[in-house]
Design a protein around this nucleic acid. Structure first.
Lengths: 289, 289
DNA sequence: TAAAAGTCATCAATAAAAGTGATAGCTGAA
DNA sequence: TTCAGCTATCACTTTTATTGATGACTTTTA
């Protein structure tokens, strides 16, 4: 059974006349007769009654007719939807971001985007920067917001904004060396902020007591409040959160970390992604100058 | 777009590898590649990312994948259902009957049938005998219960039972000739019982004042009670109904009218109809001897 | 780092199918 | 009875699907 067969079948069923159906399909009558016969042979049942003047559906035929209508409707819809998806944003759009970006920078952007393109199924995954880069390279994500610049030959990257990093602690930190006796609360090892801090500490010869890993911002902040140690984090996240904590800016040149939106150079660009990128560029023009 | 294309497409989408998909479909790799390319050309959009190691769906591809799964599922279901409809009762079964048969004789039969074959959509139409015969001949009905024998060369008929006809009136009728002054309440002119009575009256030289036509049993009985005239009817219908009316049996040989189940000789016999006829035969064997 | 294995694209040749046009036979209406 | 309208059949043509061999590229392995 085949979509063309079903189209021929329904046309005959509705015209109740093979010759007329052939005409309306721009086929020759014998061809339509043949296809109906083949369909009947394939299904092992009679679909039409032949009675001199035209044909009528048998009850098996009526059974098939119900299905045929559905299948044809779906097929039509699929063709139109997929064809238009090249031009009009529709369907899934899978984007990645770090925990911090997802929490702080994406909401206003997504709200605009989802209102403008309600037919897009937006899927947001949060991972650490190194995992995000890998997922974009392996085409599991159409694009991702990552921390720090990323000069991979297969990736395009679009600068979005600088984030300021601060050390977060319950009590003021006299100097960086205070960390020697403290716990460091951080994301899993792929986190770019943690990586930045580790570089700084190594250079300064500071070695924290130990490093505790967490999966969410909430957990880290909660533990800092409980006095379990010190964390490194985007300034704007913590300032939104709580005013009881002490924020210590990192020394230059570690203070600022840029956020980029990366995509794979040779990947298929869906209309949904194209419009997302263009909205992103637009927003930056409004925000920046 | 074509069902085979969709099958090839989903197989590739699920295997994420054209060569493996080809193997699992028992095709040669180049063939699968070609069909995917044709499908992409037809839809004017890229469906897969090619990346050295295998392929992955683009977002347009994912969009198509959702449809493809539905369409394939439906197609499969349609094939299986229609194929089995030749052997197992399923789908529509359109049967006709006279008002009287539908009211009195069908309910127990239908209740058994519908319990035994819950997948059959039973459709009952009530008409007068002559209309029923016409509908069976023109294949609008798969079968019908009609009053009186019917020797058409294109019809099979199965005797089901005799019905006794009575005249129904508010007061006793001294003789048939009392009808000369009364109204006759009857179904529309195709009714076989009315036809029987008219033959009798013509032969006896009795001419009622006038004939009033009705569409339902209820209406006729109501009017007889109101004293509007006399009606002819199946005895068992009236005796179920009301004991305040006078029933006068018709003289022989007009008293008994047989009921037949007719079908068109050369029509397609669905499994649903086959089982209906067989249940009917079975019931008669239980009732009769 | 070179060889091997695996992957997709291309293309000419072949096999399968869909479609055509002419004709025959059947049915119901004038 | 003829006639118009319908479906079935069949040899033939055209289109499409499939194959098998080859090349280019990528990842894995030794």
């Amino acid at each position: 059974m085949d979509i063309k067969d079903l189209l021929v079948f329904t046309t005959v069923a509705e015209e109740k006349n093979i010759s007329k159906a052939a005409k309306s399909l721009s086929y020759v009558q014998s061809n339509v007769t043949m296809r109906i016969q083949q369909l009947e042979a394939e299904l092992g049942t009679q679909l039409f009654e032949r009675s001199g003047k035209g044909v009528t559906l048998t009850s098996s035929g009526e059974l098939l007719h119900r299905y045929a209508e559905q299948i044809l409707r779906l097929t039509n819809e699929a063709t139109i939807t997929v064809q238009s998806s090249a031009h009009t944003p529709i369907g899934p759009l899978k984007i990645g971001a770090t925990e911090s970006t997802a929490a702080l920078r994406l909401p206003p952007l997504l709200s605009t985007y989802c209102t403008a393109y309600p037919d897009v199924d937006f899927i947001l995954e949060t991972h650490t920067t190194d995992v995000l880069i890998h997922l974009v390279l392996t085409r599991k994500l159409e694009g991702a917001f990552v921390a720090g610049s990323c000069e991979h030959p297969d990736l395009n990257s679009l600068f979005t904004q600088d984030e300021e990093l601060v050390l977060v602690s319950r009590h003021p930190l006299p100097s960086l060396y205070s960390l020697n006796d403290m716990n460091l609360l951080a994301f899993s090892s792929g986190c770019a902020y943690r990586h930045t801090l580790e570089m700084l500490l190594t250079k300064e010869g500071v070695f924290p007591k130990r490093i505790l890993e967490f999966g969410t911002i909430e957990a880290i902040i909660g533990c800092v409040k409980a006095g379990m140690g010190v964390a490194v984090m985007m300034k704007s996240i913590v300032s939104h959160h709580d005013h009881s904590l002490t924020l210590t800016p990192l020394p230059q040149p570690y203070r600022k970390v840029p956020t980029f939106f990366i995509t794979r150079k040779d990947a298929f660009v869906s209309a949904a992604l194209r419009e997302f990128s263009s909205l992103l560029t637009e927003q930056l023009c409004i925000t920046k100058p």
